[in-house]
Every structure is written in C-alpha cells, then in structure tokens.
Design a protein around this nucleic acid. Sequence first.
RNA 1: GGCACCGUCGCCAAGUGGUAAGGCAGAGGUCUGCAAAAUCUCUAUCGGCGGUUCGAUUCCGCCCGGUGCCUCCA
Length: 481
Amino acid sequence: MSLLIFNTLTGKKEPFVPLRENQIGMYVCGVTAYDYCHVGHARAAIVFDTLSRYFQHLRYKVRFVRNFTDIDDKIINRANEEGTDWREVNRKYIAAFYEDMEKLNIAAPTEEPKATDHLPEMLDMIQSLVNQDKAYESEGNIFYAVKSFDGYGRLSGKNIADLRAGARVKINKTKRDPLDFALWKKSKPGEPFWESPWGPGRPGWHIECSAMSKKYLGDTFDIHGGGKDLVFPHHENEIAQSCGCTGKQPVRYWMHNGFVNIDKEKMSKSRGNFFTIREVYKKYHPEVLRLFLISSHYRSPIDFSEKNLADATTVLSRFYEGLASARKKTAQLNEESIPNFREKVNAHPVTKKFETAMNDDLNTAVAVACMNEELRNLNSAAANESASSLEKLAVATTAWETAGKILGLFFLTPEKFEEELFAIKNHSRNLDVGKIEKLIARRKTARQSKNWAEADRCRDELNAMEVVIEDTASGTEWKLR
RNA sequence: GGCACCGUCGCCAAGUGGUAAGGCAGAGGUCUGCAAAAUCUCUAUCGGCGGUUCGAUUCCGCCCGGUGCCUCCA
C-alpha cells in the first residue's frame, strides 16, 4: 500500500518515491499580494496543507516552501489606485492573507520567501541563461528564448506549433518569438526598480519560483504544486528556466488542484465572480469552508454554493457533536490506561480505510466518507451503556479524530466550535439569549408539573426563533437551526 | 482554430471490466410525555448511439451538452 500521486507531467498516477528517504521537498505557488484572497486561493492552500499533513502522518520530514509574489504589475497598479507605496500594498494584503489562512487552520510552511528578497538569486539565473544564449536582451528587457528549450510544452501537453500566439494578447514586437517570456523587465519611469547588468528593472513573474525553489530545495526536488491555472505558462516557463539553467529536471511530481466554480464557471478576479474568504466567514465557519473544499477530489472542479456550504455545516456539526459525546463517554480513560493504545489506533479499521483513501492520490472525498461511516459506529457505541466497550470506543475515537486532524479538521474544541458557530448564525439574527433561557426555564417548570400544553407552547415559541431544544440526561440544551 | 477535461440518485459527491461509497434532502421504525439528537430501514443501472468483450457505468468511436487552457489568475 503506497502513496500514488497524479503527476501533471505524465498525466498518470505514479507511486510516490521521494528523492531522499524520509524527507520531502515541496514548493507551492502562493499568492500575489495585491488583493484579498478568494475561495480559489483557499482551495489551493487547503489541498497542499492537507498533503503536507498527510506526509507528516506518514512520518516524512517535510520542507515546505510557499512564496509571496511581492512585485508585479498588479501590485504597482493597486498602489497607484490606493495612492500608496507598493510595499504598503504588500504589507496590507500579506497581513490579510495570514488572517484568512490561520482561520482555515493552514499550518505555517517551513519557508515563505518573497521575490524581492531574492534579487541576487534571480539575477544569477538570468545571467546564466544569457551566458548560455538561452535568453537575450531587447531594449533593456531580457527574454527567454523558448525555442532554445526543446522540452517546452511538455508539462501542459502543448505543441508549440499549435499555440496561437497573439490570439488573445497583442504580440510584443520586442520579442524574437511571440512565445518568449520576460525574465527581466525594464522599469518605466516612476516604477520600483533594481539595478542589473542590463539596467534598472524588475524580475519577470516566473523567475522568482525557479530561483527560490532552487535556493531552498535544490536543483531537483519532489513536489511542486499550485492551481491548474498555473500549468501554462507559469510552470511551463519555470521548467524551461530551471532546466535551462541547471540542465536538470527541477521537479519530480507536479500537482495541480482544480478550480472553484460558481455556476459551473471558474471563479476568478477577471470575471468578477469571486467571493473573498473573509466574505464567506461572515456566514459560514472557516472550518466548514475547509470541510466543503475537501469533500471533493482535489483535481475536480468544485461548485461553490450556499447549499453546499449549508450541507457542510450540518456535517461538521455532527462531527463535533459526535466527537464531544464519544469523548464524554470515555473521559475516565486515558492513553496510559489502555495497553498498546497507539498501536491499536494505528491498526484500527478507520485508520486503515482513511490511509487507503489518502494513498490514492489524496482522495479526501473518500476519506470524509470513511469518517461519516465511522461516526455512526462511534455514536452507537457512545450511546451504549456497556463499560466493556469503552476501551474500544476510546481507541476508535482517537483513530477517528486523528484522521480528521490530518484533514485539518478538529482544530477547535467542540465547545469552542459550537460557540463560534452560534456567533456566526446569530450574527444576522441577534437573538435575545436571556429570553431564550427564560423560555427554557418556563418549559422546565411546566414539564415538572406535567403541563405538556404549556411546555409545548414554550417550545413552539423557541422554534419560531429557530432555536432547537434537546432534552438530555443532564438538562435541556439548545442551539440555532 | 489547437489542446485537455467533465456529464453518476431531487441536490452534492466517490468509484470499478462482473451489475454503483458517503453526505444533504425525503419516507418509515426505535427512543421520547411530545419533540430534538442518536440509531435502524428504504430510495439510482451511471448523457445518447454504436463497437470491443462471456460481461461496460468503467475500454474504443461518434454524437449531444458543459467547462478549462492557449493573456494575468490558486
């Protein structure tokens, strides 16, 4: 049973074999810091965070690099629009990025390099390409000569001859070939610039990833990830640059996640059909968003909709409630009191099923299904009075919870989750908690005197406020529908 | 125009050459004063037409429908 990963380069699922035993080098394209992140960014972050967590579960040491593009036309434009400095734009949106990601329980990567901190590395690479005649200067710009690299197009499955250069973008007359791309762009007056052997300018977009992945992970590393939209030209160009420079294949496994759609169409900035992550947080819990995004396979498109988020909310609430009741039932047990606890957890059927799903190209959809199935067992066992089964329940609960944590779930206590969910649901309703509690107390009194009619009246009133009550052994509990 | 991908229950979503996971919604039962929660049971032959095969939803071809990439984009 080994891990299979779909490699964009070959178009097939391949057994994953790391370059160095027990150690993985992984580079994921981060964001250009010029605006708030949308749900598409969340998906990419979640996919590769989950992959990293799973690698760690498999006892690999992961060196995870995720960059920030902090110099680019869009950043400069945004600075002009907002009437500030481009550095201020970076500061603002990188801070926002961290806020959004933390709430999604995205773990910090090992390294988070920024393009502008790596000018020497980029200039070195460009120089090397120029020296080898794989890049040329034209009017203060440096372009990569695509024709000099015969592997160009392999990643994206494109035939260079088939590309209709200029079909959608004006042909730049300063290039020798329309497919050539900029390694270095001459700066225009008033733009930020760095000195170079070819005059003042700034790096092209693609070169930063080649330079930074090389610096932090070496000439060849295991995994490079990003959204499908980066396959061409970004990653294609990266291969051309890195390979052109070092003569080595830079990446062993290329992984690309599918898009988040709205009404079947790709969510994107240019279409304007996007929801920022922070907008979503106003109505749905961040962990709900995470669960929703891992409920489909990472390479499939996923349709973002209110119904889907609402369904995910229902499921996650069930997860947390099940976790709470299973833990409550096994509260008097601990790891030490159960012989070979860890081994039992690792050998538990849910652990095995979970690993089988994840080993199949990170099939989180099946992994979530496993959790749903096991939850039924957990709930049944938690409702069972038999003390002899408690040990089993404790093992099963930990196995189940561990699987959830690898998926990046259960980063809150059930109580905290419930509290935050309440806050989100109540945000638009603004219910009077005092009134709710008063009604529950009145119902309690009525029930004690078997005045069912009065008790039901109280409940109807609560129901009208979308308050659902639940009579348990330890008293009446309530939550928002 | 080139190159890819997708079309599975009302909705979401896995999957396999031998007759289809899971979730939401729905129906019924248990439990409950009644509810709720939990639990149990039930609900699809996989866009269409051909082909290959003992057998296809799963492979091949065509058609229909949808999407993506060929510009920046997770």
